[in-house]
Write a protein that binds this DNA or RNA. Structure first.
Lengths: 247, 247
DNA sequence: ATTCATATATTAGTATATTAGTTGAGGAAG
DNA sequence: CTTCCTCAACTAATATACTAATATATGAAT
């Protein structure tokens, strides 16, 4: 079917399994990766708004580089669903796919029920103290009404639980999955009163982990994230042009 | 902190939120995507072996295209962890990260417990018949000792459950996550007797879905996937050079 | 023989040029 | 006034060319 060109299958002039270890720096400091990081931040923070066009050429000139690394960055963002590429036509900041949000939250809930349970199964004292410190930091941010710090502590709390569970990779996956939810919330949240509720929900999770009650930790995490699902349900169509709806 | 170059923030010469709908073809038939699909198949099927070098230039000539689309394909594969890029040095088929396999299976288990439970909650008769048909096809493949068909039916069974659960996107995510596990199994599986066991485990899952027992479906799926975890634990080091071990 | 410095070849990263598809405006035909 | 067609401008996709970093081979000095 596909016109796979001929070419020997394994024409390797060198040994098939090559030299074992290389320099330990798999792509960190390239221009492309810097641009990717910057652009991603602009997208999740909604500095670039859903539906807005993105010009490869313009970004290239603004960074003083060629279009190639910019393109590499944008392709990656396209895989994450943050931008949409229309061939020979244009690149646009993707609209928020409201229909997919519940699924993303369900995925997150499944995964975090697991990390919470496993964290409760084998948390060490030092790990628990760390989590408690993070929760305290969040409380301070709440008192200071510093939403940015609050959010940061929130993420660190959840990431910390994954870490304690012995599977930090799960949090990395969640970060990918929840990106559209984050954009949604950034648009629709004044929510100051919500902060203290969040802390009130975090507390029993940590308590269960501390006391080694896996099922309790799982349940507490589950109800915490179910609140999130409820929030989404109240679809506030303040800026309908930012959302992708099947009419 | 980050050296975001100057350039107006929203210099959009056109309306900030642009024209609504474009052609409905977001990148399917480009050379890059064809090459990506082909290469990915070669990687998961282990036609290209872990540790083996990959030459952009060689692939480009074999396809009769330039390095650019080849590079695009390889970058995507790099994001998926199927290849490793060492700057100015070379690209290599990634070794199988054995340390990460249990985590991948745990993720899969979490997610599929959810899809199984939700499928049992609201499966229609026609959906159940479809699942039963798939399971029957798998039984036939088992009888015929056709491993390829068996595997295909297996995937379709799990994908079908996700579909019935109302969240097909979850299966898409699982496909991403389990790629290294698949490579591992492809290397270490003669396993003919295993096939009938798999079917014996699928049966109670389907039965629970059919009878609308969510908790039963979840539990059946959980023990099914726990077997997978056990298989991995028996780390058979037949070809140690294919694996990435922290020694 | 072994080690170290150097040269050379190979590679990914980036820059620039070309190709080809899409859009939208403007004008001709109805 | 509406519809259709043509065309100009813009875009992503690809090709080609160049740069800089890395690795391996080579050869001299020890």
């Amino acid at each position: 079917m596909s016109s796979r060109a001929p070419g020997k299958l394994t024409p390797a002039p060198r040994p098939v399994v090559a030299r074992m270890r290389r320099n330990g720096r798999p792509r960190g400091a390239t221009a492309a990766s810097r641009i990717y990081t910057d652009l991603r931040a602009e997208l999740v923070s909604l500095v670039r708004r859903p539906g807005e066009p993105i010009s490869e050429a313009q970004i290239a000139t603004s960074y003083g580089v060629s279009r190639t690394p910019v393109r590499e960055a944008i392709l990656k963002l396209s895989d994450e669903g943050l931008v949409e590429i229309f061939p020979q036509s244009g690149i646009f900041v993707s609209r928020i796919p409201v229909a997919a949000l519940p699924e993303a939250i369900i995925i997150r809930k499944s995964l975090e029920e697991t990390t919470a349970r496993m964290a409760a199964e084998h948390a060490t004292s030092s790990q628990i103290l760390n989590l408690r410190a993070t929760l305290e930091r969040q409380r301070e941010a709440c008192a200071a009404k510093d939403r940015e710090a609050f959010h940061q502590a929130d993420e660190m709390f959840h990431a910390g639980i994954a870490e304690v569970s012995g599977h930090p990779g799960i949090w990395k996956l969640i970060l990918q999955v929840k990106v559209h939810v984050d954009r949604y919330r950034r648009l629709t949240l004044p929510q100051i009163g919500r902060m203290s509720e969040v802390i009130a929900e975090h507390e029993p999770i940590l308590a269960a982990i501390e006391q080694g009650r896996p099922e309790g930790a799982r349940a507490a995490m589950a109800s915490h994230l179910e609140r999130l699902l409820d929030d989404i349900s109240e679809i506030q169509m303040l800026n309908p042009e930012y959302f992708d709806q099947p009419t």
